[in-house]
């Protein structure tokens, strides 16, 4: 829950502050209401905290963060498992 995970935006949902993101193959909706001013678009990367995109990052940063997270093992796997169970819509 303390981990920020990078996700790539695949779709901005109409009418709601939600976007579908891809986090290492897991696709879920996250809330993007806290990044209102950023004009997010598919292909952008964001750091996600517990279902909310909290900051926009570039792809190189996203990849570096993913590599680091994969290296920490259990805690990251738990976070992805939790995300998999998420049903935000």
């Amino acid at each position: 829950m303390c981990l920020a995970i990078p996700g790539e935006i695949v779709e901005i949902m109409p009418d709601r502050p939600l976007a579908k993101v891809d986090v290492t193959g897991v696709r879920r909706a996250v809330n993007i209401g806290l990044l209102d001013g950023e004009r997010l678009a598919p292909g952008d990367w964001v750091l996600i905290h517990v279902g909310f995109a909290m900051s926009k990052i570039d792809e190189a940063e996203a990849q570096a963060t993913l590599t680091m997270l994969q290296g920490i093992g259990d805690a990251y796997d738990d976070e992805i498992d939790a995300l998999r169970e998420s049903r935000i819509d």
């Binding site: 809330n31 909310f52 169970e85």
Partner: peptide, 11 residues
């Protein structure tokens, strides 16, 4: 129950 996000709790 374990949730990933408070939004899941709301759900």
């Amino acid at each position: 129950r374990m949730v990933y996000s408070p939004l899941d709790a709301l759900k």
